[in-house]
Design a protein around this nucleic acid. Structure first.
Lengths: 113, 113
DNA sequence: AAGTGATGCAACCAGAGGGTTGCATATTGG
DNA sequence: CCAATATGCAACCCTCTGGTTGCATCACTT
C-alpha cells in the first residue's frame, strides 16, 4: 500500500465531478501508456492548466500515478488505491453497524431480565 | 438503499476532518438515542451553528439520520450507508484493475504470437 | 539551429465553504 | 404563565479552490 496521505484527502479529491471525469478518462485509456494533461484537456471541457491542478490533487491523494516520458508526463489511474479506500470505508461502516447490533442485543437481554 | 444523492456529494462530505469528527462522535454515541447538535458542539471545538451546517451536509449526503424529539433533534450515523459507499468504490477500483489485467493478457497473447 | 508542441509557474477572478456572532422562535419545566 | 434551553435563520468574514489567461522553459523534429 503506497497510500501516503490521509484518507480524508482522498475523499476530498473524490468529491469533485471534474476529478471523476479525469479519473474515468484515465481508466478508459491504455493503462500501459497513460494519458497526458493535454490529452485529457482535449477530452474534457476545461483548460489544460485546470486539468494539471486536478492531477496534482489526485496524485497527492495517491489515486493517480505519473511518469515523465520525454517532454511529456503520462498519468495512470490507480484502481487498486480506490479499492483499498473502499474497503477501508466498508470496515468503518461495518464497525458502526456492529456497535448498533451490540446495543440491540444488550437491550434484548435487559428486556428478558 | 436510501442513498438519495450522488456518491460524489457523499465523498465531498467525507472530505472534511470536522465532519469525520462529527460522524465518529455520533458513532460513539448510543445509536438508539442519537446526539443533538448542541451535544456535539459540547464535544467538539466548534460552534453549534457550525455543527448544524455540517449535519445538514451529512444528512444531504445520506450519511446521517435525524428525528425531532420534543424541542430537540437527534442525529444518528448511518454506518450502512458508509458500507454501501465503500463497496461501490471497491467495485469501481476492481473494474479498473480488471481492465488493466485484460490489457496485460492481450499483450501476453500478442507476444506469444 | 530553429520551430513546434508539451509542460510548469504565476497572477488573477469569482464563487463556494467553514466558521463566527446575533437574533428570532419554539418547547419544556416549574 | 414564565423562564430556560434547543433549534433555526441570516448576515458577515476569510480562506480555499476551481477556473482562466499569459508567459517561460524544455525537449523533440526537421
Amino acid at each position: 500500500m503506497v497510500t501516503s496521505t490521509s484518507p480524508v484527502a482522498a475523499f476530498a479529491a473524490l468529491g469533485d465531478e471534474t476529478r471523476w471525469a479525469v479519473l474515468e478518462a484515465l481508466a478508459d485509456a491504455d493503462p500501459a501508456a497513460g494519458l497526458t494533461a493535454s490529452a485529457l484537456a482535449a477530452r474534457l471541457p476545461v483548460t489544460r492548466q485546470a486539468i494539471a491542478k486536478h492531477l496534482v490533487v489526485l496524485e497527492a491523494a495517491g489515486l493517480v500515478d505519473s511518469r515523465a516520458v520525454g517532454r511529456e508526463r503520462r498519468y495512470r489511474a490507480l484502481g487498486a488505491e480506490l479499492t483499498a479506500l473502499g474497503r477501508r470505508l466498508e470496515r468503518i461502516g461495518d464497525a458502526w453497524e456492529a456497535r448498533l447490533g451490540r446495543i440491540a442485543s444488550i437491550a434484548e437481554h435487559l428486556e428478558r431480565g
